[in-house]
Every structure is written in structure tokens, then in C-alpha cells.
Amino acid sequence: MSAPVLELKNVAKTYRVKQGLFGKPKPLKAVNDVSLKLGRGEVLGLVGESGCGKSTLAKILLGLEAPTEGQVLVDGDAIGGQDRLALAKRIQPIFQDPYSSLNPRKTISDIVSLPLRVHGVGDAESRAKAVRETLELVGLPARVLNTYPSQMSGGQRQRVAIARALIMRPEIVICDEPTSALDVSVQSQILNLLNDLRDDFGLTYLFISHDLAVIEHLATRVAVMYLGRIVEEADVEELFATPRHPYTRALLNSVLTPDPSQGVPDTQLGAAYPNPISPPSGCHFHPRCPFAQAECKAKAPRPIPTASGHVECHLHDPESTMYRENLSV
């Protein structure tokens, strides 16, 4: 892998959540000791259930939330030391809901040119030119300039959001479920566009999605998050060919490919997602894990290196008694 453009070192974010009127605030570890490296031009797919901390991680990367521990490095510079303006030039977001991500009171031209105006780039004329060029890039004609978001369809709005994210030519784009609010036929257009833009501008994506088929299609690396931790991370080929963590396997199992010869899969995930305020002891996944044993309840698994990433599971820890049993499975 080339020198990482984005690196997370032991990043953690703990919220203090008050329970009830007079309850003592309890810590909620939304992101718990996450380390990641992302090379230029790569697409890291981040998957996990709602509440697993993937959106908090995105907010930390965008500078909207400060991590309580750890460091985020862009091109080797810690972004804690950078001001928000400098960070904004390098990392930009594309949000899930194009109905909520565009200010309804502004014209498309205002929306797309906002980054330029905030950063004081160029004069009115050069800004207008940049806006037109960027809109063309995302496939929107110049005549949308003076229209309002309410006049556009969902797909068109998402193109505007992409234009706004790209006008400063960032290095990294955080895509938080960018297509899940769109219709199937529009979704594929946006995915194709994101893929093309990555090729053309050497963009690096952090791509958050619940749709594993989309992740498999777009991502080069995949990280699986569970209760604030990255429980498995690997190159996309490896992860989809040989998922190691039982949770990853369950996720892959739950993908519904349009194949009428198969029924609804059994994910073998019994219990519901745990309350992050009081996470289960040991391995957080053990109450839902079909392979759980006493050790899982008692001891948190450590990260075990794999061919292209790591996994946190006793089944794959050579020092665990469960390792041998796993080999025999």
C-alpha cells in the first residue's frame, strides 16, 4: 500500500449520556480504539448496524466531533492541530439524505459555491465558472444554477451535493449512505458517477453503507464495525471470500441477492443489538454469536493479523483454546 492518505490511530469517542432526570451520566463508547490506514485512491467500505459508531467516526473525520482519544492523520499531519478550514479543503462529506443536505432557501449556485466563498477563493466570476464546471462534472446542466433544491429530483439533488463536496478538490470524500435514500434506478447512476470521479481525480472514499452488495462492488477495503470497534478489516476480495469474524459472516449471509432459487437466509443472530451504554462483557458480540464460549464472555479478543488486515475473535487467536476447535470446524 502506498503511504496512507488517511490514518486513524487509536481513535475513541466517548459520550456521557444522562439516564433519567437525576441519573449519573454514563459513558457511551461510540467509537472505541479504532485504527485504520487508507491509501490514496482506495475505497474503504465501512459496514455495521445502526448505532455501531460508523456515523460518529465519519463526524470525527469531518472535524464535526473531536475524538476523546487518539489521532487522525491526513497525509501524515495530525488534523487535531489543523483548523477546520484547512481540514475542510482535504475532507468533504456526501450525506445520505439529499432532501436534508441542501438548504431549501438557497439556489443551486449558492449551495455549490459556498465552499469557495467560505474559503475566500477567487472572485465572483471565477467562482461562477468553477461552479459551472463542477456541475458539468456531475452531469448537471448550467441551467440548474438558479433553481432551488425543491425543484429537483432526489438523484439530481445528490448530484448537487456531490458537486459541493468536490468543488474544493478534496483528497478524501466521506460518503455516508449516499444512495440509500434514492430509487434503485437512480442509485446506480450515482454509484457510477462516484466511481468515475474517483478514477478521474484520484479520490479516496470512506464509503459507509448498509448495502453489502454495493460495498462489494465499489470498495477496495472493508472494515466491519460492531459496538464502536472494528472487528474485522481486510481487502474486499479477502473479506468476501473468507469472512473470518462470525459477525462478518452473519452480515454477508444476510445479503439478499435477487435470486429466487434461494430463500431468506438464517443469520443465526439470535438476540437484538445490545445497548451501547452497557455493552456485554468480554467480546461485545458474544451474546449473539453462534460460536460463543466461556472465554468470549470473560476476555475481550485482541486484534489478530490476517493476510490483508485483522480480525478480533478468539476463534482466530492461536493462543486461545478456541483456535484449535475452529481449525477442526
Binding site: 472535524g63 475542510a88 479543503k89 468533504q92 462529506p93 436534508s100 438548504n103 459556498l114
Partner: peptide, 14 residues
């Protein structure tokens, strides 16, 4: 709560 507020903040707007 709207995402355009987050978007403006992520752009670096004061």
C-alpha cells in the same frame, strides 16, 4: 439537525 448545517460546518463555515 438538518444535514446542510453539518455540510456547511464541514466546509469550514464559521
Amino acid at each position: 439537525q438538518r444535514e446542510y448545517v453539518s455540510a456547511a460546518q464541514a466546509i469550514g463555515a464559521s
